[in-house]
């Protein structure tokens, strides 16, 4: 499994990977998390497009009220809109999206698999390298980063603090493409959180709900400590990205 995954990652367009520094964001999923994130990103100065499962007019009113300034769109339009996309669908539904949909995009996997809530899903349940690895395998040409999965939707909004604020809450980002991770860390900072480089994608396990940081508010230092305790391999760097 691991060998195949590494191989697939190696096939990804590494030569063209780059850090993305525009303020455009796509969000796939217009539920409570997707709409909350859209609102936060608009407030942080991002040009946001967001999609639900159907045509854009079914979520137009929702977006107009809950995330004014964001564009209600189809998923295809969201992908065209931005190079950084957040996957904010119910956990098992990522499989309903086409495998090449996010080719070359930074794809932030904000989903969590938790069997008592999501039901039995053997593939996700047995994901030794974390569920984001399974997401990466489904979207082989996407630059997957596990992040934004640690806080509940209302905590996301209630925990934002400006850069440099004391006791700012930390959010981790784990991914194999370092420039993609840096891109996500910049977004996290803009959203009001201390970004923590959690290392390669399999370190996303440390960010998943197994008694680890889910729904708990950690500072960057505390979170980095927890990640290094959990991780099997070395992490590139720990600590806030500036």
């Amino acid at each position: 499994m691991a060998v195949a995954a590494d191989h697939l990652t190696a096939e990804a367009p590494r030569a063209t990977t780059r850090e993305i520094d525009d303020r455009r964001l796509g969000i796939v999923g217009a539920g409570k998390f997707g709409t909350t994130l859209a609102r936060a990103a608009v407030a942080a100065g991002y040009d946001v497009a967001i999609s639900g499962s159907g045509p854009s007019d079914t979520i137009a009113l929702t977006i107009d009220v809950l995330a004014p300034g964001a564009h209600a769109a189809t998923t295809d339009e969201v992908v065209r809109h931005a190079d950084v996309i957040v996957l904010a669908v119910p956990t098992h539904r990522f499989r309903e999206l086409q495998s090449d949909l996010f080719a070359g995009k930074v794809l932030i996997d904000a989903t969590n698999y938790w069997p008592p809530v999501d039901g039995d899903d053997p593939e996700l349940a047995d994901a030794a390298e974390g569920t984001s690895r399974i997401v990466q395998q489904h979207f082989p040409a996407a630059r997957v980063v596990k992040s934004l999965n640690q806080l509940g939707y209302h905590q996301l909004e209630e925990s934002q603090r400006p850069h440099g604020a004391p006791n700012r809450i930390a959010i981790g980002a784990a991914g194999d493409d370092q420039l993609a991770v840096r891109t996500v860390m910049r977004l996290l900072d803009h959203l009001g959180f201390d970004p923590v480089d959690a290392g390669p994608l399999e370190n996303g396990v440390a960010l998943e709900p197994d008694g680890s940081p889910i729904a708990t508010t950690y500072t960057a230092e505390q979170l980095a400590k927890r990640i290094s305790r959990c991780e099997a391999t070395h992490s590139r760097a720990n600590g806030p990205y500036v």
């Binding site: 009113l61 929702t62 009220v65 809950l66 509940g152 209302h154 909004e157 209630e158």
Partner: peptide
């Protein structure tokens, strides 16, 4: 059942506008 209740104010507005729609 958790957090500040006023964060639900936008949902009330969404509901009222959706009723109209």
């Amino acid at each position: 059942i958790g957090g500040r209740p006023e964060r639900f104010a936008p949902y009330v507005e969404l509901y009222k506008r959706a009723l109209e729609q």
